[in-house]
């Protein structure tokens, strides 16, 4: 990780990100907007899949998914640029490391949903309770992303190794 970070420092992207003084605050603002879209969509989808807000047709919650992906895309792009702009700080920061592990867990959890639950979703009771497995996936998603926000916000304040 550190060797990779070292190879970035001084490169084209690093030089570009660090040479424009207003780019960092702009990217932070975009990162906050992205997380609002990502979490906004997922709160609706996952709380319904956890069995709450049953007035909402469960299959229709996936109409919100494009916003989740747009939010994720914004944050992946700005996130990669943050890393390239200050690689040595992020690589050794445990807040960042825990955040990345949680993003991977959330991703695997989404894969689990896709492989095992997605195809049956349209046969679920539109306004009914959900299965135990669906509830587990929903809670892992909600808690995982909350953890991503928590540890992401701690990055500036925790040990740099």
């Amino acid at each position: 990780m550190e060797a990779f970070a070292q190879s970035i420092e001084g490169g084209i992207v690093y030089t570009w990100v660090t040479s424009i003084y207003w780019l960092w605050p702009l990217m932070e603002t975009l990162h906050f907007i992205g997380l609002s879209l990502l979490l906004g969509g997922l709160i609706v989808i996952d709380t319904r899949m956890a069995g709450f807000f049953r007035g909402i047709n469960i299959a229709a919650t996936h109409k919100l998914l494009p916003w989740v992906f747009i939010g994720f895309g914004i944050n992946l792009t700005t996130g990669v640029l943050f890393f390239f702009g200050d690689p040595m700080r992020y690589a050794v920061n445990w807040g960042f490391q825990v955040k990345m592990v949680l993003v991977v867990i959330a991703g695997l959890n989404a894969l689990w949903f896709w492989l095992r639950l997605n195809k049956d979703m349209h046969s679920w009771e539109p306004h009914g309770d959900t299965s135990g497995e669906a509830k587990v996936v929903a809670w892992i998603s909600l808690l995982g992303w909350t953890g991503v926000l928590l540890f992401g916000r701690l990055i500036p304040y925790v040990g740099t190794g």
Partner: peptide, 20 residues
């Protein structure tokens, strides 16, 4: 840092839900 973390979680709930 704890208050900041709570603030970003609250932000996601408020702006997330209201934007949807």
């Amino acid at each position: 840092p704890f208050m900041l973390s709570m603030h970003v979680i609250g932000l996601a709930i408020v702006v997330g839900i209201l934007s949807m």
